[in-house]
Structures are given as C-alpha cells and as structure tokens.
Design a protein around this nucleic acid. Structure first.
Length: 399
DNA sequence: AGCTGCGGGCCGC
DNA sequence: GCGGCCCGCAGCT
C-alpha cells in the first residue's frame, strides 16, 4: 500500500542524504546495516520520509520520543515498533490569540484522555476543540517506525505531516500542571481567603517556580551531562521544557525537508515572539478571567540564558559525542502556548545547521577530533549529523 | 491520570 | 499478507 510513493520519496531522501552514508536500508529489512559511519542527533520533529540511525545509548531514541503526538500502533511485529500520528488539536472556532497565534494543542495519546480532551474548551476563546487528524501518508496518519538493532536504533518515518506541530509533550505536561496548580490555587484561595499564609502566594497567581510543573524529570528530554551540570534544577527544567525549540534554525531540507512546513508549520512561530510582545494572548489554561499577568510572569520567569552546547535537549547525553558544543548563547524560555520564547539569536548559518538533507557544513558536526572515518575502535564513535530540528521555525508565518 | 508498549482481533484492499 | 485501527492489559511516572 502506497509503496510506490514511499519508495519514490525514499529514493529522493536517499539521494539527498549524506555522502556515501548507507541509507538504502528499510526498517523492514531482515538485516540492517551495522557499518554505520555516522549516527544522528535525536530528531524531535521528524517529518517526511526520513530515516535516522541513533545510538542505542540515546535515551530519547530508546524511549521512542517524538514531539509529534504519536500513538502506538500494532503492526504485529514485535521487532519493529510502529507509531502513528494523532495530528493536532485546534480551536473549532479557528480563533487567534491577541498576537495572532493559533491554538495547536497536543492530542492526548491515550484514547480516553483524548476524548476527554476534546470535550474541553479552547484555552483562548473557550470554543470547542477539534482534532485535526494527520493525513500525511496517503490519507493516513504519518507513521514512525523504531527498531533496535545492535548498537543502533533505526528510525524511519513515512509520510509528511499535513498539519501544524502540536505542543511538545513537555509543553502539554506543563500546561496540565499549570492548570492543576491554578485550579488548586483558586480553590485554596477561596478556602483560605482570610488566612495570612495565602499572601505568600499572592502577588500571585502561582509563579512558575511555585508550580509543580515543568518537568521534574530531568532526563525526560535529555541534556548532555556536561550541560546539565551547569544548570540549577529549575534552570534545567526550564531548559528541558525548551528542548523542543532549539535556538537554531533548521536546515532547509531537514528531515526530507517537506515544503509543506513552510505553509503550515506556524506552530513553531507560536513559540517565539519579540520580547516586547511577551504578554500572553493565550492563557495556558482556560481562564474564566483571563489574566495576562499570569502569562507575563511565566514568560519572564522562564527565561534563562543558555550557554554553550545547548541545542535543545535532544542530544544524546550518553551517546557518542554528547558534547559537540557549537558555542552560542541563547535565551530560551518555556514555551507553552501561553509562554513565549525570547528572541534569542537565531542562528544564521548557526553553529549547527546540519541536517541530512543539508549536506554542507558537515564538518560542523564532526567530532572535535579523531573521528576521521567516523569510527574508532569499532564503535560508532561518530558525530550525529544534526544538532536539532526546527531550524527555520522562526520563518514560518502565522496562519 | 496519562504515557507507553504489547498483543489479540477485526476490517478493507 | 499487509496496513490501519480498536481494544484491553500491564508497567511506569
């Protein structure tokens, strides 16, 4: 089914792939290549017909993470894990926030949770929510395949997402946490209205650091160990939450470079706007009395300077060359639908503009040294080909 | 509560 | 047979 189309695109992808790199494999092959010269940095937003080879040490790959909302699909093959895209939850009213952003929520993975989610209202206008299904693979959802083989984890994507990017998992979790916290807060506020302690909370609506949110699981999206060490816990959390949006432009042709992205991938632009517009048009949670104050707090509180080596958290922390600093300072903020990114320096030809489809500059991703030939001592001591995804996220126009 | 992986089963092609 | 999908279960966070 659809094999003709698949193969055609795969061929295209292959031809655009790295020089000499073996990408002729298919996830269904009985034998997958083990003479891999170069493994990839974890791709948070794989799109189009792409293949990646990750280190088996890569925690994100181990967990089969994706920032797309992918659900497990039974393909009756225990060796190959298959996942299909759930699309994105949009506002049924197609509302826009004050700053023109659209609502792109992450569909819950669990069926029941998703149904429940769709009964909820748009956090912006309280209108109905609508699930925009993914039809990027011949009318069917885009599918991702994962297969562990030897010291590598093979990834293959089939189909090009025909919908905007949803929030990342972390953003969705954070939003839920905020929602819970606010609910709890409003409840306790009512109850404790006259109790002095409450004042410690006020000033405020729960400040981000007061919220039980933001990824208390440091390795949820993993940072290189060296980077982790440089952050306070809260900073880590914030940084991790920013993982989906590395401060680097995405190389043209990344992940097979679907052109469609240019037209629909505006969700990325949700995540960033000038600091002067940092007010929030999108409450992180449905607010009966929307308060941009909350969001302002969030957006300002979640700013942190990020130093060298940070390309988003999707870098193998234990994988080969987890280092690979590209040396750039960035300002990341937590970017829920409510919170925005500061306009950190967008890499223009940034330090890590690498993508399989963007052949040039491969030296940038080469291991600092001693990696000639891509391997050492028989192990895949090679530099992942990417720093990360999203390189052009800033360029996507709002719908 | 929600995410994730697994596997049985059904359906259409 | 293959691919898509639904469902329930179990483990985990």
């Amino acid at each position: 089914m659809l094999k003709g189309a698949d193969e055609a695109v795969v061929e295209q992808e292959d031809s655009a792939s790295q020089q000499g790199e073996v990408t002729s494999w298919d996830i269904n092959d009985i034998k997958l290549p083990q003479d891999v010269r170069q493994i990839d940095w974890f791709q948070e937003w794989p799109d189009s017909y792409v293949k990646h080879i990750y280190s088996s040490e890569d925690k994100n790959a181990q967990r089969h993470h994706s920032s797309w909302a992918m659900r497990n699909t039974n393909n009756h093959n225990s060796r190959i894990l298959k996942k299909s895209c759930l699309g994105v939850v949009v506002c049924g009213n197609d509302c826009s926030t004050l700053d023109g952003r659209k609502i792109y929520l992450r569909p819950a993975i669990c069926d029941k949770a998703r149904q429940k989610q769709q009964r909820k209202c748009c956090p912006n206008c309280n209108g109905p929510l609508r699930l925009l299904s993914c039809r990027g693979h011949g009318g069917y959802p885009v599918t991702n395949f994962w297969r562990h083989e030897g010291q590598f984890i093979f990834f293959q994507s089939k189909g090009a997402h025909d919908h905007p990017r949803p929030e990342t998992k972390l953003e969705a979790e954070a939003r839920r946490s905020i929602q819970k916290a606010q609910t709890a807060f409003s409840t306790s506020s009512l109850r404790l209205k006259t109790i002095p302690e409450v004042e410690s909370l006020t000033g405020a609506v729960p400040m981000p650091e007061e919220l039980p949110l933001l990824l208390s699981k440091p390795d949820d999206y993993l940072l290189p160990a060296h980077f982790r060490g440089h952050l306070s816990k809260s900073s880590q959390e914030l940084t991790l939450s920013s993982s989906g949006q590395p401060p680097y432009p995405r190389a043209a042709g990344q992940d097979g470079g679907s052109r469609e992205e240019l037209t629909w991938s505006h969700s990325s632009s949700l995540r960033r706007m000038p600091s002067t517009e940092r007010l929030c048009g999108v409450p992180a949670v449905p607010c009966t009395a929307p308060s941009s104050q909350h969001c302002t707090h969030l957006s300002t509180q979640h700013v942190l300077p990020v130093t060298k080596g940070m390309h988003g958290a999707f870098r193998p922390d234990t994988g080969p060359l987890g280092d690979g600093s590209c040396g750039e300072k960035s300002l990341l903020t937590y970017r829920s639908s409510c919170v925005s990114l500061l306009p950190y320096p967008v890499a223009q030809g940034g330090p890590c503009p690498m993508a399989r489809g963007a052949k040039p500059h491969s030296q940038l991703l080469e291991p600092p040294r001693g990696s000639e030939g891509g391997r050492a001592k028989g192990s895949p001591q090679v530099g992942p080909r990417y720093c990360n995804d999203d390189m052009f996220s800033d360029l996507y126009p709002l719908r």
